[in-house]
Design a protein around this nucleic acid. Structure first.
Lengths: 80, 80
DNA sequence: ACTATATGTATTATAAGTTACACATTAGGA
DNA sequence: TCCTAATGTGTAACTTATAATACATATAGT
């Protein structure tokens, strides 16, 4: 319970990169040494990974962090 | 005890950006809504902030995450 | 000397990231 | 149909990020 919302909403296009490379969540997870649950959580939405993990993802996908992750202003805290 | 090392070492040039803007740790902390302790920890070294916080920093400093943070392979011994 | 600012360090407490499971479902191929 | 890979969902345990606070110290200006 109690999920404090961060100031910025982090969205990502990880599934797009995965689709381009045609790799499964499990493959990606093993490649960057996390569990599949972590990949699911990231792709699933409101999830704020560590910067180090973001770097590992960007490095593996041969791109930069901003190409994978975008930060949006959180226009309202209580719109749900 | 038991400090699992991340796969990548995250370094940063936050103090350089601060120096350029001539702002104190406390000013920066307030601007991005963290405590000064968090700024000290980040500048101090082996510290892995959240991606969301990295975005807040980059946004405030009018730059991108990679200009502030760099990921190095962890070459030091006893890896794995 | 005094004062205020800036930084480093430390401790405790809470929030959140991540793992390691398990179970379910869906889509495809043989 | 059966089998398998891929994905979604959930939860408990563990680790780490961050907050809140206090204390120390150095430095610059008065």
């Amino acid at each position: 319970m109690s999920k404090l919302e961060p100031k910025l909403k982090i969205t990502n296009r990880l599934h797009v990169f995965r689709a381009e490379k045609r790799i499964s969540q499990e493959e990606l997870a093993k490649a960057i040494d996390v569990t599949r649950g972590t990949i699911v959580a990231i792709e699933g939405g409101d999830y704020n990974p560590s910067l180090e993990l973001a770097f590992r993802l960007a490095r593996y996908l041969n791109t930069d962090i901003h190409s994978i992750f975008q930060a949006e202003e959180r226009t309202d805290g209580k719109n749900k």
